[in-house]
Design a protein around this nucleic acid. Structure first.
Length: 464
RNA sequence: GGCCUGGUGGCGGAGUGGUUACGCAGCGGACUGCAAAUCCGCGUACCCGAGUUCGAUUCUCGGCCAGGCCUCCA
């Protein structure tokens, strides 16, 4: 495989070479489970799932280890637990279960590890201890703070100088900080919040240290690929790296840093304060998972993605086209095949999914037009390509008819039979009346010489 | 204020120093009892200005516009 990835650290595309091809490691910052995931949260999940699939294909599934953390200690979780008057694990279990279900609908494979902050406490405390011992951290007023001046490359990932950070500081600096950019590793818990004992006093960990400790525990440092949304570059990933390196890990934390662009609602960021949050949890009940996944991968992962119902409708239409080709090739037995060469080239070029989609359409077009003897191979190639990245898994007929329950199905079949009789008798008014009836049921009829097939029409936009 | 992205046809969205993206939608034709699906064909684009160049949508500079990060955030 000639995989090339854009590395945030070097700001250029670089050929991907793992430290050990027998053990390729990837870590992605996962959810904080205090609410249902919104569709923006789902973008990195799907993007890095795609990369996970490519790596597994290239190095063998057993040689790729993917970890995504679950942050289950957090102010928002605490607040929710207090609001509902329940223990925090009631909150975290509820939303983690929903998260797993929703991401599964989007076709995301489960990572090998999903470490939880609460289950990594010993390692977090141990890592903080090492940072203190190395003079990369200090204690002050019940806190343990990371000393950014101990790490000369601080700011390298995000491209900021220490001066920039001071100049750009918009928040009041806590008086106990030695440097304005110093950040919390351990802090006292507020009343009512969960608390853990530690050599630095009772309290709870800061957010950044969780990830460093979980990577150290589940994958070992350095890792090959670290991913996340581009809003995490600073401060989260910058801080993670500083911690990891200063906690006895030489000079390298992650060989490749990958960051996905944001999903926006129109021109605005999705946010609670703007009231434009769209939950993945709601979308999965309105659209097929593959259509949502297609929409999420329809633009390059580093580009911003403007989300709307139309985005999904267009995605659905594109998939309809591919499934339509497969439906017409239903009697062709697919020959086992590798994904198309051009298709793989596109994906290996920094996950160029738009180009990969174009290849998919080209393969479909070829299959549609090919002489009978070539179709088995072409169908196999199309399926192998699509399925590699999580598409074309459905039976074509159920893709188009899946929304119909058995009763509706029986009714449709009866109407079509009735209409066929009318057509045989050239009774066009009756045939048209029946078709109008089917149309009213959202059913589209496609006549052929021996009868008719049908499909459910797309629901269309505007149902939000 | 500091740092950083991006501005491509009606919409989504790649890519390239000189040639086709691709998809959705639209239009014309074939097919059809009429349709749908399919097939064939068509259209409209590269924010503005200057520079480099034989030639720029693509490189450089400036401008305008939009968005992000600097505080929790995918």
């Amino acid at each position: 495989m000639n995989l090339v990835l854009y590395d945030t650290m070097t700001r250029e595309k670089r050929p991907f070479t793992p430290g050990d091809p027998e053990r390729v490691t990837m870590y992605v910052c996962g959810p904080t489970v205090y609410n249902y995931a919104h569709i923006g949260n789902a973008r990195p999940v799907v993007v890095f799932d795609l990369l996970f699939r490519l790596l597994r294909r290239a190095y063998g599934a057993e040689h790729v280890i993917y970890a995504a953390n679950v942050t289950d200690v957090d102010d928002r979780i605490n607040q929710k637990a207090i609001d509902e008057g329940v223990a925090i694990d009631v909150i975290t279990t509820r939303y983690l279960d929903a998260y797993h279900a929703d991401m599964s609908v989007l076709g995301a494979l489960r990572p090998n590890f999903e470490p939880r902050a609460t289950e990594t406490m010993a390692e977090i405390i141990d890592m903080i201890g090492r940072l203190v011992r190395n003079n990369a951290a200090y204690q002050a007023e019940g806190h343990v703070l990371f000393n950014v001046q101990a790490y000369s490359d601080y700011g390298k990932l995000s491209g900021r100088s220490m001066d920039d950070m001071i100049a750009g500081a918009r928040v009041e600096v806590a008086p106990y900080k030695q440097h304005p950019a110093d950040f919390v590793l351990w802090k006292p818990s507020k009343p009512g919040e969960p608390v853990w004992e530690s050599p630095f006093g009772p309290g709870r960990p800061g957010w950044h240290i969780e990830c460093s400790a979980m990577i150290e525990k589940t994958l070992g440092l350095p890792i090959d690929i670290h991913g996340g949304g581009n809003d995490l570059i600073f401060p989260h990933h910058e801080n993670e790296m500083a911690q990891g390196i200063c906690a006895d890990h030489g000079t390298e934390y992650a060989r490749y840093w990958l960051h996905n662009g944001f999903l926006n609602m129109g021109h605005e960021k999705m946010s609670k304060s703007l009231g434009n949050v769209v939950l993945a949890h709601d979308l999965v009940s309105r659209y097929p998972g593959e259509a949502l996944r297609w929409a999420l991968l329809a633009s390059h992962y580093r580009q911003p993605l403007a989300w709307s119902d139309e985005t999904v409708d267009q995605a659905k239409s594109g998939l309809d086209r591919l499934y339509g080709v497969l439906l017409r090739a239903a009697t062709v037995e697919a020959e086992p095949s590798a994904p198309g060469v051009g298709f793989m080239d596109a994906l290996e070029d920094d996950l160029n999914t738009p180009r990969a989609y174009a290849e998919l359409f080209a393969m479909a077009q070829q299959l549609e037009a090919a002489p009978e003897e070539d179709r088995a191979h072409l169908k196999g190639e199309l399926l192998a390509s699509g399925q590699l990245i999580g598409f074309l898994k459905a039976d074509p007929e159920s893709w188009f008819q899946g929304g119909a329950d058995p009763a509706m199905r029986a009714r449709i079949d009866a109407l079509i039979a009735e209409r066929f009789t009318a057509r045989e008798a050239k009774d066009w008014p009756t045939a048209d009346r029946i078709r109008a009836e089917l149309t009213a049921m959202n059913v589209e009829v496609m006549d052929n010489p021996t009868g008719a097939t049908w499909r459910l029409k797309s629901e269309g936009a505007g149902s939000t």
